[in-house]
Design a protein around this nucleic acid. Structure first.
Length: 722
DNA sequence: TTTAGGG
DNA sequence: CCCTAAA
């Protein structure tokens, strides 16, 4: 079940400019992920727009003047030549056929390729008359969901039913016609999939709000989404004369600053972000027309630049990772996070700046929540009125003036950025936190060998040295929950089950050697460790750590290194990169000087398997076993579509399961076929009903046959096809 | 980018 | 689930 809101906005025609090719190129992305990322970018864009709209909305306390049933659509201005499955989004959603979802994603992809799209309010012409709510079922579902999410972040409530014309409705995620009573069945399954999305980390790009969630849960969900997306919006009021080129929009200083109503505090004015992510800003030209398009009032245009501050190259995972590390950083009870250890910060100044950038980003992202807690709705409305002058109560909330007003407000807030520390503290007080008390750490195995004649004092010293050597940077923290190691760094505490005053006794921490740590620092701090004796007299494991990862001193500007975990992907940024490498070079050479020659030798001798480092950096995706319901969906989709159309299968049955790529589905089918062929005794994991396996075999057989037939036809009788 | 197939 | 050649 999906809660949907129909949002009413007083203007229409969001023109999304072409996004430069350069902003899309990304290295190191895995192909399976690309489509999702791309889609997500586009959705973020839409969400961004939606978020701005919400600002407008908030500043106008009389939304009831806008008629219901209004929905935003994405329409394309360009003709896309790729297949024949493209329908204009202007088409009546009622007539959508089975290919429409494909069309949507393809169009979104094309959008990222530079096609022009218009986010458009299609119902403006006939207020309340067009597009009965029920007609929006499929393609727009995602968009609306985003819109809903954004609104929720601002309003922080899911049942704002009164004047925002929201309603709940069930939406079928399937887009093929479902015969007879199959619909309910389908919806049921879809619900289950969605529920799964919630329990599994980051599996959905959207925050899907299933029924029955508490407000608190929703809030956390939305927060998580915001963290994932890392997207902020910014509205400026550019010079109208330059509005032709959205990229050239001037940024005017804020006209008004309000500390209260400035909901989505943006970051555009942040010089750090500007410097670090010169290409991260997707300019969005927003053309605001008057509500009644046909009236003379619609002639005036204003342009609003919406900037989505989501570094386009940043993988979802990376953002999350970084934010996660940010979290730990905030928590004073925990030792430094390996992902962003202090030593790393020292060595890579760019990290620091980025980090602070992100800190700000993140805290501001949370601002809507704070605002809501601190202020009543009334005060928001009041300030909104103040910002927009007399327009707020006007029946036509949609005048251009107000758009500008809202934009200026937001912009002003973006400039008035608060110190990070303050924001963090307020952040901390505003969210439910898990309080942890770490009584002691379990230290990883440490083998120490001493001559019998050694004194107790020297033993102590050796142990201390060994421990402190490891503590010097060569460790990371392992988290244990109920005795099981929590490996997924990207999961939130909530998702992992670490909630306030609950289960905390089962939570444990463990020190582990950090294979990625830089040995030079450690050795630099304790050079005597290697010097006083022969290396063979130090069979402790800690000295091994350095040579186990000799590549770390490698200062080559390897993007893999630069892009690691806590760092925003920055391979395009010319500024920080040289700093990083030069800084590291210096450090490294300095470190090498301090290291005895034997260590240098060790460094040279032991080649690091590149793979291992890579796997350190690019984390393997979490394994998510297919549930029976997922298998059933897959089987059904393959029965319908065949075995050679995994993309369609994905779109058909797993559109909302963002963590299932078509490659995953293909692989799963492969294993399903295999499973079906082996004896039940040999099967592992959650048992798949035999009935499903039978269907797998029969479908597999059928489609293999079909493929063979097609193959024969196209080869033996090519002329017949002409 | 998607498919197909090996690992 | 990853990787990658091939289309």
């Amino acid at each position: 079940m999906v809660l949907q809101k129909r949002l009413n906005y007083g203007f229409n025609g969001y023109q999304v400019p072409a996004i430069p090719q350069a902003s899309r190129s990304a290295r190191g992305r895995r192909s399976g992920k690309k489509a999702e990322d791309r889609q997500m970018c586009a959705f973020d864009l839409l969400a961004t727009v939606a978020g701005e709209l919400l600002l407008l909305k908030e500043s106008n306390p009389c939304p009831s003047t806008v008629s219901p049933g209004r929905t935003w659509f994405v329409t394309t201005k360009n003709t896309i030549k790729q297949g024949q499955q493209h329908k204009s989004f202007k088409h009546d959603p009622c007539e959508q056929g089975s290919s429409d979802k494909s069309a949507f994603s393809t169009k979104v992809g094309s959008h990222m390729r530079g096609a022009n799209y218009v986010l458009e309010d299609q119902s403006h012409a006939q207020d309340g008359a067009t597009l009965p709510p029920d007609s929006i079922k499929t393609n727009y579902e995602a968009l609306e969901r985003v819109v809903y999410s954004e609104e929720s972040i601002i309003e922080n409530k899911k049942d704002a039913s009164s004047h925002w014309n929201c309603h709940t409705e069930r939406v079928s995620s399937g887009f093929e016609e479902l015969p007879d009573g199959k619909m309910d069945d389908r919806i049921e399954r879809h619900e289950s999939v969605e529920r799964k999305c919630h329990t599994e980390r980051g599996s959905s790009n959207f925050v899907e709000i299933p029924g029955g969630k508490t407000e608190d849960q929703i809030q956390r969900q939305l927060e998580a989404r915001h963290q994932r997306i890392g997207c902020q919006t910014h509205v400026t009021t550019p010079d109208i004369s330059t509005s032709k080129n959205p990229m050239d929009l001037d940024i005017k200083p804020p006209a008004l600053v309000s500390s209260d109503s400035s909901i989505k505090a943006p970051l555009c004015g942040d010089p750090i972000s500007g410097g670090l992510f010169p290409r991260c800003q997707d300019g969005v030209k927003v053309v605001c027309r008057d509500d009644d398009e046909n009236s003379s009032r619609c002639t005036q245009h204003c342009t609003v630049s919406l900037k989505a501050f989501r570094p386009p190259h940043v993988g979802d995972r990376r953002i999350r990772k970084m934010l996660a590390s940010k979290f730990w950083k905030v928590s004073p009870t925990l030792p430094k996070n390996r992902e962003l250890s202090s030593s790393e910060l020292e060595r890579k100044p760019a990290f620091c700046s980025k980090k602070s950038w992100y800190t700000r980003q993140r805290t501001q992202r949370c601002y809507p929540f704070k605002r809501r807690k601190f202020s009543e709705r009334n005060s928001v409305s009041t300030s909104g009125r103040g910002i927009n002058g007399d327009g707020a109560n006007s029946p036509k909330m949609n005048s251009n003036r107000e758009v500008i007003g809202a934009g200026a407000t937001v912009h002003g807030v973006s400039r008035a950025s608060t110190p990070v520390a303050i924001q963090e503290s307020s952040w901390k007080t505003e969210n439910s936190h898990v309080k942890l008390s770490i009584k002691s750490f379990r230290v990883p195995e440490l083998i120490i060998e001493m001559p019998e004649t050694a004194t107790i004092g020297s033993l102590k010293r050796t142990v201390v040295e060994a421990v402190s050597s490891i503590l010097g940077g060569g460790l990371q923290i392992g988290v244990l929950l109920q005795g099981k190691k929590v490996r997924d760094d990207d999961k939130t505490l909530l998702q992992t089950g670490i909630v306030c005053d609950d289960k905390l006794d089962t939570l444990g921490f463990m020190l582990e050697p950090n294979p990625a740590h830089t040995p030079s620092l450690c050795l630099e701090d304790h050079p005597h460790l290697l010097q006083p004796r022969d290396a063979t007299q130090l069979p402790t494991r800690y000295p091994v750590v350095p040579s186990s990862d000799p590549v770390v001193p490698d200062v080559s500007p390897d993007p893999l290194l630069v892009n690691t975990g806590n760092c925003i992907e920055s391979d395009h940024d010319s500024v920080p990169s040289p700093d990083i490498s030069s800084e590291k070079s210096t450090l490294n050479s300095r470190a090498l000087v301090a290291i005895p020659s034997i260590s240098v030798e060790a460094l040279a001798v032991v080649p690091l398997p590149r793979k291992s480092r890579r796997s350190e950096l690019v984390q393997r995706r979490i394994r998510r076993p297919f549930s029976v319901s997922e298998v059933e969906a897959l089987v059904q989709a393959v029965e319908k579509l065949g075995t050679g159309r995994w993309r369609d299968v994905k779109l058909c049955a797993f559109e909302d399961a963002k963590h299932r790529t078509y490659v995953d589905l293909k692989d799963k089918w492969k294993t399903l076929v295999h499973t079906a062929r082996i004896s039940p005794q040999q099967r592992r994991g959650e048992p798949v009903p035999q009935e499903l396996l039978d269907r797998v075999l029969s479908a597999h057989g059928y489609w293999s046959q079909q493929q063979a037939i097609q193959h024969v036809k196209s080869h033996a009788e090519p002329c017949l096809l002409l």
